[in-house]
Design a protein around this nucleic acid. Structure first.
Lengths: 180, 180
DNA sequence: GTCTATAACTAGATAGAC
DNA sequence: GTCTATCTAGTTATAGAC
């Protein structure tokens, strides 16, 4: 993976456009115009439009895999808390990439490197549910995971947002103490 | 608005395809193949591809507007509860349409009839927040609204899912009783 | 490493026969 | 009301000059 100024700028512009208009809704012409180069230059640096997508997703996917590894050695409540904190942190630092992954339609998401992301999200959802057997608790985990992703998308990292996301996750997921 | 068998079938097939591959990711050819007719037939029944989208979204948008009207005369906790119940009901009965609206990229969502949907969603979010002034509570409302939409999308209406969505919304939004 | 020009293809939409 | 054939414009990707 060679690093050049133009290559990095292509990734930056593509990330911005993909997150606003979607992968299918963004053409090579749009990206080239944003960078200030020709379409041919894009395809000199990347094999294809999909290769641009793969390259810009890669760092976020790698960190998600890291989080997955960290969670694997934990269990129960500690795993749940680490999953919440870790995911909120990740989605705020990669809010554009999260949007691209999250809003990507099925056919785009079935292509690499998304294929490897899917099981990591499933693991994360299981960690959010903290081994609950009640279907309602598993659905709650899905709601929180999806809701956090959706709200964080496109927003800059921010302390208030970060703590609010963690707070609502814990309020929604921590089993309520019987009655009140 | 004339009702014909072919017209309705076009809407049904388009709804299915748009929800799986997105508006941009679905071609007239795809829809025609699904219906078993030609592209020209699609454009005999509808002025354009976008007109198909508008027609299939219309019933869901109309019901959302109805919900908005019902909520307008309520206040406080009653409004919040009615918003949660009403939205969960709506999104489960129109789970495909919800996906199309929810996952639609910006440029698609800026076109009619989506322009009128956006403020209704904002009102709904305010009802979820129940007039809370704390930014964290408003963010919680966004998370719950987005999470419910996302989880319901594409799923059949189901009593377990319905009650679980309502339950997680109430757990996440009802302000916790001081400490525990 | 970047460009212009263009190939090869697909899109949405139209014309006109039946 | 549905079709085949076609138009125009836009798409990804390649060729070859600089």
């Amino acid at each position: 993976m060679v690093r050049t100024k133009t290559r990095d700028e292509i990734i930056a512009v593509a990330a911005e456009l993909f997150s606003r208009a979607g992968f299918k809704g963004t053409s090579l012409h749009d990206i080239a115009a944003g960078v200030g180069c020709s379409k041919a230059t894009l395809l000199y640096h990347f094999d294809s439009k999909e290769a641009i997508l793969a390259a810009l997703i890669a760092p976020a996917a790698a960190e998600l895999a890291e989080l997955d590894t960290r969670l694997a050695v934990l269990g129960g409540a500690a795993r749940q808390e680490a999953a919440i904190d870790g995911f909120v942190d990740l989605v705020l630092r990669y809010s554009r990439e999260a949007g691209i992954i999250y809003y990507g339609s099925q056919d785009v998401l079935c292509s690499p490197p998304f294929a490897e992301v899917k099981p990591l999200i499933d693991n994360l959802c299981a960690a959010f549910a903290a081994g609950a057997t009640d279907p309602a608790d598993q659905i709650a985990a899905e709601v929180v995971l999806a809701g956090i992703s959706s709200v964080a998308i496109g927003k800059p990292d921010d302390a208030v947002l970060r703590s609010a996301l963690v707070a609502v996750a814990k309020r929604a997921l921590l089993t309520p103490p019987m009655k009140d």
